[in-house]
Amino acid sequence: MSIIVDKINYIYEIGTGFERQALKDVSCVIEKNEFIGLIGHTGSGKSTFIQHLNGLIRATSGNIFYEGQDIYDKDYDMRKLRSKVGLVFQYPEHQLFETDIFKDVCFGPKNLGLSKMDTELRAFEALRLVGLDENLYYQSPFDLSGGQKRRVAIAGVLAMKPDVLILDEPTAGLDPKGREEILGCVQHLREETGITVILVSHSMEDVARYVNRIMVMNDGILMYDDTPANVFAHYKELEQIGLAAPNVTYIMNDMKKAGWNVDTSVLTVEQARDSILSCIDQNVYRK
């Protein structure tokens, strides 16, 4: 149950004056139920990469194996792959179109040729998974808030019962609470269904809080592929390529420089708090 990416290269507009290599020898193994954060500056190849994973783009060279099968084999069922690897694009709410939310979520499974009952069961299940209030199911999707619309759009992909869910900047443009709701929902979903999640994000704080592995793309190369703590330890290199570490990483590094014996590998505010408190005499603050 995994995806193996073996030295894929992708060149845009090959053979023309605009030829540009978007991916260079990218290799990785993605295991079942992983929660991966994919980061990189705009134009680093993130979107090109994720579109390879469900066959929307075909690599110029190299191979991709989905559950042991080469997806570029002549008789490989690409349609099936696309229902197994669900891709939620940026601003997915722009793709909502039906008169009510329930119908919108039914659209995908209906097109798989499922019976009416199976389609509706899947839609219910998907809407339940994204935690949308049942009173809203038969309302127009256009009356919802930004975060709710986005959850409906994600439900539309979940109704296809994918094994892998790829989200391209699912929190762009949402308020802090909306960001937390979407990512909390994705995390919960992963725990409940065992789905694999790949999260493309520009928010280092969000990535640090939720994922357990980070892949960093730079100019088409997979530059780092490691745990969040190990990746953010390279915060200086990340800055060179237009990224950053979460703010707490900077706070903890500055404290360390000022002579505090704090843990610089913390990823969240809560961990930072605990690390700072462990350096302070408990008599000073115990209530």
Binding site: E205, V269, I276
Partner: peptide, 14 residues
Amino acid sequence: RLDVPQVTELVYEL
């Protein structure tokens, strides 16, 4: 539904 900068949140947690 808003937030504070991470430094401020850390102070709040402390």
